[in-house]
Design a protein around this nucleic acid. Structure first.
Length: 613
RNA sequence: GGACCCUUAGCUCAGUGGAUAGAGCAACCGCCUUCUAAGCGGUCGGUCACUGGUUCGAAUCCAGUAGGGUCCGCCA
């Protein structure tokens, strides 16, 4: 199936910066070609039917079947009424005025009036050579770069990361990597839950079980934070004295009491260490900037909302009444920004963050990667920020929601005993299973491999599988978590793609080939499978640009899966090392370019390739 | 009461206006003297939940219906 290519209809709008269409000089690959084709079709339209047709979208889309060529222009059908003529006649006139013989074969008019276009092989060969010579594989850099914040992962202090944090972390990382690769100025923020009333009980409990934390946080080892949290919670629920002391501790902390503050820091530090272990394993880069960071800014949010006339008092709380949201009685629903007890909540923090990020960080695009259950919350916060005019012209706030991770029973993923699954254990199991599988394979093939090799491959395959399984799903839908499926060696999985990469490395080893020394040989696309692979390789830039715009990493996964399939077909049908020159070198270049494309694409997903497996 | 999301092959899912709706898995049948068969080819499989509308053209856009899910005042 052809990859859907973004012809950047949205990116060309106002306030979005220059579109990919304006970067032709930097781009050698498919986007520039399509843009070129589009312009020529527009010129043909004007030449055929006059200046009224200026700016008409030629509706250039990939064909759904190779027998129709590579791309088709569907504009003729839509013009039939306006031009009072038959679509096929219109298509004929367009083709008569179209000059594309340097790029394409003779256009074919088919069906009701489709104009089918097929690239000339020598044009593709030249394009491919240009991509081959380009370290960025034809992907342009953003001009100008956008200051972008990606807000993702966001676990809660004093709680262990669990499966619920997996998607935000993996999707956020991939989005950040993709935007960074395009040259955007990305700030990755971990908006951890490091503030709130739960710290009262935690501090009080810490004071009892680990008093040294109250004077020196650096030496403290609280151990298993989940157990610690549960113990504190149990005491809070069971013991009234403890509850009272905890509430006092909250006040202490908020008023800046040094001892409470030190205990809080100890808790945060402990959590941070645990989080970092997970981030290191997953190769995630994040800057922690928790809720507490915004504490000094919260008062101003309320004060300013008041002076703007948006603030109202309702049942003792300070609220902004929302448009388009009503409560059970049909009255406007409030967004609470200051609680009856004078405290602030998450809406206040998010509003303060928007202000800080747009003013101090100068963010032009702020991306929130959270579960879909928070869609209401963000819609409400964005609405208030908008009405308060805190979102400067041209700044885009975007909630990137994702669905639940469910077990194979279709219910929310839990352990057999009903506990939340810890992320640490989930990753361990993925690696353990990958290792078991690998050892079996090594035994079956009577290979001799070192423990280090087994460790490296198991880890790479396990981590890659977990990430790829998540990213390859359309993020908006819930997804069913299955170790068996994600680690499967066939199908749309990480191992399948890693294997395609390994196959290229195998050729390099076997033939003692240094891919960097292939020189300036011509690319020859003689066989059908070579041509198909080449066309797919050229489509990388369009896919990456689309992911950056729409923020759906599964599109890139789909592309890479299809690339692996097309490579395997080529590998099956065309021998490389045994081929005669000049085909041999050309095929080696195709292999190398495939491997580089896989490596780059997987890296944008946060997945590392392996040389052997 | 309101907001949002979902319903596509036996299963898991792609597919946000273009030709005959795709893939993987499962099932079945083939292909290793040749670069790792963790691969390739083939067969089987669908009233795109339903009803209407817009359009030259609808799985896709709009309205409604049914079913499933999530969220909604002092947690985040």
């Amino acid at each position: 199936m052809p990859v859907t290519l973004a012809l950047c209809p949205k990116a060309c709008g106002p306030n979005r910066g220059p579109s990919p269409c304006e970067r032709r000089s930097l781009s050698v690959s498919m986007l520039s070609t399509l843009d070129d084709l589009k312009n020529r079709l527009q010129t043909a339209l004007v030449n055929a039917f006059g200046p009224d047709l200026e700016g008409t979208d030629p509706v250039l889309v990939p064909t759904n079947n190779p027998k129709f060529g590579d791309y088709q222009a569907n504009v003729a059908m839509s013009l039939a009424k306006r031009l009072k003529d038959k679509p096929r006649a219109i298509a004929t006139k367009i083709v008569e005025n179209l000059t594309i013989d340097d790029l394409c074969e003779e256009p074919q008019i088919a069906g009701p009036g489709f104009i089918n276009l097929k690239f000339k092989t020598d044009y593709l060969q030249n394009q491919l050579k240009a991509v081959y010579a380009d370290e960025r594989l034809g992907i342009p850099t953003a001009n100008p770069p956008q200051r972008t914040i990606v807000d993702f992962s966001s676990p809660n202090i004093a709680k262990e990361m669990h499966v619920g944090h997996l998607r935000s972390t993996i999707i956020g990382e991939s989005i950040a990597r993709t935007l960074e690769f395009l040259g955007h100025d990305v700030l990755r923020l971990n908006h951890v839950g490091d503030w709130g009333t739960q710290f009262g009980m935690l501090i009080t409990h810490l004071r009892d079980v680990c008093p040294e934390a109250m004077t020196d946080s650096s030496t403290v080892d609280i151990g298993d934070l989940v157990t610690f949290y549960k113990q504190a919670k149990k005491r809070f629920d069971d013991n009234d004295d403890f509850k009272t002391t905890s509430r006092e501790a909250v006040v202490d902390l908020q008023s800046g009491d040094p001892e409470a503050r030190l205990a809080w820091q100890a808790l945060c530090e402990q959590s941070r260490k645990e989080f970092q272990k997970i981030y290191d394993r997953l190769d995630i880069t994040l800057q922690e900037r928790g809720e507490s960071f915004y504490n000094p800014l919260l008062d101003d949010v309320v004060v300013d909302l008041k002076s703007l006339g948006l603030l109202e008092e309702d049942q003792g709380a300070q609220v902004v009444f929302l448009e388009g949201f009503t409560n059970k009685d049909g009255n406007p629903q409030p967004l609470i920004v200051k609680k009856t007890d004078g405290g602030f909540n998450y809406a206040t923090t998010d509003l303060a963050a928007i202000r800080q990020r747009t003013t101090q960080e100068k963010a032009q695009r702020i991306i929130y990667v959270t579960d879909a259950g928070q869609a209401n919350h963000f819609a409400q916060v964005f609405q208030v920020a908008n009405r308060a005019q805190w979102i400067p012209e041209g700044v885009e706030l975007v909630h990137v929601p994702f669905g639940l991770v469910k077990g194979e029973d279709g219910k929310k993923l839990k352990t057999r005993s009903g506990e939340t699954i810890k992320l640490k254990e989930l990753l361990n199991e993925a690696i353990d299973r990958a290792e078991k599988d690998l050892r079996q394979r090594i035994a079956d093939e009577t290979r001799d491999e070192t423990e280090e090799f087994i460790h490296t491959v198991s880890t790479g395959v396990g981590m890659g599988a977990v990430k790829y399984a998540d990213l390859s799903q359309n993020r908006t839908s819930d997804y069913i978590f299955s170790f068996d499926k994600m680690l499967a060696l066939q199908g749309n999985t990480a191992p399948y793609m890693l294997y395609a990469y390994v196959r290229v490395q195998g050729i390099s080893r076997k033939g003692d080939i240094d891919f960097s020394q292939l020189g300036d040989a011509p690319m020859l696309l003689a066989e059908e499978s070579e041509l198909t692979l080449a066309k797919h390789l050229l489509a990388l830039d369009a896919v990456v640009m689309e992911v950056a715009q729409e923020l759906y990493p599964n599109r890139l996964c789909q592309y890479l899966f299809e690339l692996s399939q097309k490579f395997n077909q080529f590998y099956d049908r065309c021998s490389v090392l045994q081929a005669e020159e000049p085909n041999r070198t050309s095929r080696l270049m195709l292999c190398d370019l495939t491997a580089r494309t896989l490596k780059l694409g997987l890296s944008l997903l946060g997945i590392s390739v392996l040389g052997r497996m």
